[in-house]
Amino acid sequence: MEDVDLAAVGMALYKNGTLVYSGVGAAALGDPLYSVAWVANFLGRFDFALEAGEIVRSGALSAAGDAAPGDRFTVAFAGWETLERTFAPAEEGAPSGAGAAAAEGGEGGAADDRSVDRRGRRGTGG
C-alpha cells in the first residue's frame, strides 16, 4: 500500500450495468490519509487515541444506493481488480424491503453493517 497514491485512486460503481456513482480518493479532504489524521487529532482532544491494528474508515468514494433482489453491482477501482455482487431473490416468507436481500455468496440474510469496537461501543458502520 505504500506505493499507492490513495488520493488518485478512482472508482466507478455500476448497478445492473449502468454507471450510478464515481469518485476519487481526493474527495476525502484531498487525501484519505488526511481524513484519518483529522479523526485522530479530533479524538485526541478527548484523550482518546487510535491504536495499532484498529480499522478506520476514511470515507466513501460513493454514496450508498438502493439494492433490490436480483440487482447486480460492479465496482471498478483504477489499477485494481473489479468486484461484482448480485443480490439474491428474497426467500419465500422472508421479510422484504430495505436490507432484506441477501448477497449472493454471503453469509445468508441481510448484511448488518453495524460494528462494535474493542471497547464494546456500537457504531453505525456508515
Score class of each variant (00 low, 15 high):
Ala101Met: 03
Ala100Ile: 02
Ala28Phe: 14
Gly120Leu: 00
Ser35Asn: 06
Gly120Lys: 00
Leu19Phe: 06
Glu91Tyr: 10
Ala90Pro: 04
Thr124Gly: 14
Leu13Lys: 01
Ala12Arg: 08
Val4Phe: 00
Arg119Gly: 10
Val56Cys: 03
Ala12Asn: 11
Arg114Asp: 01
Ala49Tyr: 13
Phe46Pro: 08
Gly97Thr: 04
Asp3His: 09
Arg119Trp: 06
Val24Leu: 09
Leu33Lys: 10
Val20Leu: 06
Ile55Cys: 15
Asp117Lys: 04
Glu84His: 06
Arg57Asn: 15
Gly70Asp: 15
Ala63Cys: 15
Ser35Pro: 01
Arg119Tyr: 07
Phe73Cys: 02
Gly97Trp: 03
Gly59Lys: 09
Gly108Cys: 09
Ala28Glu: 14
Ala68Cys: 12
Leu61Gln: 05
Ala12Leu: 11
Ala40Gly: 01
Ser96Gly: 13
Asp3Cys: 08
Arg119Met: 04
Gly70Cys: 08
Ser96Val: 11
Val9Asp: 07
Ala78Gln: 14
Phe73Thr: 00
Ala7Val: 05
Gly53Leu: 08
Ser22Val: 01
Val20Asn: 01
Ser115Asp: 14
Asp5Gly: 02
Ala103Trp: 09
Arg45Gly: 05
Thr18Glu: 15
Glu92Met: 08
Thr82His: 05
Phe77Gly: 04
Glu91Trp: 12
Gly97Asp: 09
Pro89Leu: 07
Ala52Tyr: 13
Gly97Ser: 08
Ala100Pro: 10
Val116Ala: 15
Gly125Glu: 10
Arg72His: 09
Ala98Leu: 11
Leu50Lys: 01
Ala26Lys: 11
Asp5Tyr: 05
Asp31Pro: 03
Ser58Met: 09
Ala100Phe: 01
Met1Phe: 03
Val20Trp: 02
Gly108Gln: 07
Val75Tyr: 04
Gly65Gln: 02
Arg122Tyr: 11
Trp38Arg: 07
Leu50Ile: 10
Ala88Gln: 11
Ala103Thr: 11
Ala76Glu: 15
Asp71Ala: 00
Leu43His: 05
Glu104His: 00
Thr74Ala: 04
Ala102His: 03
Ala52Phe: 11
Arg122Asp: 05
Ser115Cys: 11
Gly105Asn: 08
Gly65Ile: 13
Arg45Tyr: 01
Phe46Ser: 12
Ala88Cys: 05
Ser22Ile: 12
Asp66Gln: 08
Ala78Val: 15
Ala64Glu: 15
Arg45Val: 03
Asp113Asn: 12
Tyr21Glu: 13
Asp71His: 01
Ser58Val: 12
Ala102Glu: 09
Ala88Glu: 05
Thr124Cys: 07
Phe48Leu: 13
Ala100Met: 08
Gly97Val: 06
Ala60Asn: 14
Thr86Val: 02
Tyr34Lys: 07
Gly125Gln: 06
Ala52Glu: 12
Leu6Val: 13
Glu2Arg: 05
Gly123Arg: 04
Gly10Pro: 14
Ala27Leu: 06
Glu51His: 14
Val4Arg: 01
Ala63Gly: 13
Arg85Trp: 15
Pro89Tyr: 06
Gly105Asp: 06
Ala67Tyr: 11
Phe46Gln: 10
Gly97Pro: 15
Ser22Tyr: 12
Gly25Ile: 06
Phe46Ile: 08
Gly105His: 02
Ala64Asn: 15
Val75Met: 07
Gly17Arg: 04
Leu29Lys: 00
Gly109Leu: 04
Ile55Arg: 13
Val36Asp: 00
Asp112Pro: 02
Asp66Met: 09
Arg119Asn: 12
Arg121Cys: 11
Arg57Lys: 14
Arg72Trp: 08
Ala26Val: 02
